[in-house]
């Protein structure tokens, strides 16, 4: 088992490196010379002096070959140095460490909300396949799936203000236990909920046709316990493997939700960096996003044997 986990992590590291290399290469060859860009952006009449630029490039190590620069970038990363923003000149690391907690907390809450709402709903829909209840749940999920967060956000925000004229505008960040988190959280959870409801429902229908469910009924297990003990457990396995996909949905959603609700997180940072073509920031955020998704995939791989004892046995053989 430990050997299996070690193997997964060993295989994981080169993937992360390759993703970093790809993203770095895009920025390196695409965006062009960062020093030149800084000069061109500088306010006022800073003359573009090729000789000076060359000197700065030399001192910043930018004349070195691509791979060496990439290696340097990685070494700096390991020390928490992501370079400086082209726009503000601030350290990217400082910008990200200020923004990341907001996004992480919001995202984590969204995952919890999704799990708590979507799995029971999917279970109920699947157990009542082709009934009115099933169609209602499935239809609502489809509806949520069809509204992009950048439409749902503003609509809900202003809709709430119209219904409750006295309340404060739900704009900004006050932590997880602040009332202002509710609306962004709801909007951010819409699409993951729709995704998981459909996944859970499909898995439930599949499991219900399994022989062991019939066995449980033949033993006189009450329907509620058949659902909770015999159906839910095997359903969770395929649903948990969707964690990576949920992460991507939430990262995508956070970009819009943070923009609409004015949350100072990574999503809003992304949009600002995009507007300013501030690629060191974009590079860093993309790396963090990919790392998160890959980390959740690794987590699923490692957790899988715990969920499915059959997988655990086959792993002992390795």
């Amino acid at each position: 088992m430990l050997r299996y986990i070690a193997m997964r992590i060993l295989l994981w590291i080169p993937s992360v490196l390759l993703v970093m290399l790809g993203v770095y290469a895009l920025a390196f060859y695409g965006a062009g010379d960062p020093i030149k860009l800084i000069f061109l952006r500088a306010p006022g009449d800073v003359a573009y002096d090729p000789v000076r630029v060359e000197a700065i490039r030399e001192s910043a190590g930018l004349t070195k070959p691509f791979l060496e620069q990439f290696a340097n970038y990685l070494l700096n990363l390991l020390q928490g140095n992501f370079g400086n923003s082209l726009n503000s000149g601030r350290s990217v690391w400082a910008m990200i460490s200020a923004a990341a907690p907001v996004s992480f907390k919001l995202g984590l809450c969204a995952i919890v909300v999704t799990a708590l709402i979507a799995v029971p709903l999917g279970l109920v829909a699947g157990l009542n396949q082709n009934t009115k209840l099933d169609y209602t749940i499935l239809g609502s999920a489809l509806f949520l799936w069809a509204i992009p967060p950048y439409v749902a956000g503003p609509l809900l925000m202003v809709g709430l203000l119209l219904i409750l004229p006295g309340i404060h505008v739900p704009y900004g960040w006050g932590g997880v236990f602040d009332a202002r988190i509710i609306l962004p959280l709801v909007v951010l959870s819409f699409q993951p909920i729709a995704l998981i409801v459909r996944q859970t429902r499909a898995a439930v229908i599949e499991v219900l046709s399994e022989d062991f469910v019939r066995t449980a009924r033949a033993k006189g297990v009450p329907e509620l316990f058949v659902a909770l003990k015999h159906v839910l457990r095997p359903v969770l396995t395929p649903v948990v493997t969707q964690l990576g996909l949920i992460m991507i949905t939430i990262i995508n959603g956070a970009i819009f939700v943070e923009l609409v609700f004015g949350l100072p997180g990574l999503g809003r940072l992304t949009v600002q960096a995009l507007i300013n073509s501030d690629y060191p920031v974009i590079l860093a955020i993309t790396l963090i996003g990919s790392l998160l998704v890959m980390l959740s995939n690794l987590l699923v791989d490692v957790l899988y044997p715990l969920l499915d004892p059959r997988a655990a046995t086959s792993m002992k053989g390795r």
């Binding site: 390759l18 695409g30 965006a31 990576g244 995009l274 073509s277 590079l283 998704v293």
Partner: peptide
């Protein structure tokens, strides 16, 4: 398949943002 898995683990919106930020100007 390794390459496929990796491509799938880059959040797609962010990747497009990177590509745009880096390639649009040039």
């Amino acid at each position: 398949m390794w390459f496929t898995d990796m491509t799938m683990s880059v959040p797609n919106l962010l990747l497009v943002v990177v590509i745009n930020a880096s390639l649009k100007t040039p």
